[in-house]
């Protein structure tokens, strides 16, 4: 799973009632509230702001309202998946149609056609088991797996991904 430290910018708008000695703290508090925990198709999952560039830029007063806008530059820790990437995750849920793998905040769907070729859905146990004699491999909730992302849809506030476990060196983590 690939995490990145990226430099980003954000314009933060502040109400005039905060124009006092603690203005700087308030501007940064607003930045954290607006960005941390958000998802964007462009930069992925924003886990935490780790640094805000100092000194803070001067604010610009908006005509009419009296609000001030601060164009902030900051460094953030993000998680951004890419098509073709191999990553490890944990099976969060499953049905006969496939499994959902949690990779941190990202959920990757692996359809039953893309589970390892030696595995089949077991109706009695409600999980995927290996048909190879002597193999104990199973796909059930909590299993650690290694997958490759084969499809991804990104829009303004959401990322959805599908993956495969069916290739050399992918599948249940030993």
């Amino acid at each position: 799973m690939a995490f990145y430290l990226v430099e980003l910018t954000k314009s933060v708008t502040v109400h005039p009632r905060y124009f006092h000695a603690k203005l700087g703290d308030h501007v940064i508090g607003r930045l954290l509230a607006l960005t941390e925990g958000t998802t964007s198709g462009r930069y992925g999952y924003l886990i935490a702001v780790v640094q805000v560039e100092r000194p803070l830029p001067p604010g610009r007063i908006l005509p009419g309202t009296g609000h001030a806008v601060f164009p902030l530059r900051y460094k953030a820790l993000v998680y951004r998946p890419f098509l073709g990437e191999v990553l490890d995750g944990v099976i969060a849920s499953l049905t006969r149609h496939g499994v959902f793998v949690a990779v941190g905040p990202l959920s990757v769907f692996v359809s039953a056609r893309n589970v390892p070729s030696d595995m089949e859905f077991d109706e009695t146990e409600q999980c995927f088991t290996s048909v190879v004699q002597g193999s104990e491999d199973r796909l059930e909730v909590g299993t650690l797996v290694r997958l490759r992302i084969v499809g991804m849809r990104r829009d303004a506030t959401e990322i959805a991904a599908v993956g495969t476990l069916r290739a050399d060196y992918l599948g249940v983590l030993g």
């Binding site: 799973m1 941390e36 999952y45 944990v90 990779v103 905040p105």
Partner: peptide
């Protein structure tokens, strides 16, 4: 008050 994105990333890094 930490976001779900934060705690999920935290759980992930602790495990892997």
């Amino acid at each position: 008050s930490l976001s779900p994105v934060f705690t999920k990333a935290e759980t992930y890094t602790e495990r892997f």
